[in-house]
Amino acid sequence: MEPAALRIAVLVLTGVIVALLGVLLGAWWTPFFVGAAFGLIIRRPAVAIPLGTVSGLLAWLFPLAGAQLRYGLGPTSVSLAEIMGFDHQGTLPVVLTLLVGTLLGLTGAWLACAVGMIVRPQPR
């Protein structure tokens, strides 16, 4: 593996683990900061933003998948949909949940990249 690719793989793995640990400990907002870290460490937004997005998605997806495997989320998902007024549309709470995690990672990375583009010296 190329050193650059290896570096990114380690970064991704670390980021996802940190985000996941944070979420598991109840700090649901961790993906935002992991995404921001990506944005600060990786200078290229085209790399940093997708990485932040994926880490946010995975950090919220894994615990959800774990709950699905342990308990089954069908009745819970339908109940949440009913509570939210979406009738029996049980997929909506799942989508909404994953969307929140994804957006946290995405916006963290995007904001950090955008700030970086302003404050970092521009290449000549």
Partner: peptide, 30 residues
């Protein structure tokens, strides 16, 4: 994103604490 994640908006609860998979409403499955 952070606003709707941290604060209730209209009929929606604060989405972060409400839907996070480890301590939010999903815990009703466990």
């Amino acid at each position: 994103v952070l606003f709707v994640a941290f604060f209730p908006a209209g009929p929606l609860p604060a989405l972060g604490p409400a839907f996070n998979p480890t301590s939010g409403a999903w815990t009703m499955a466990a």
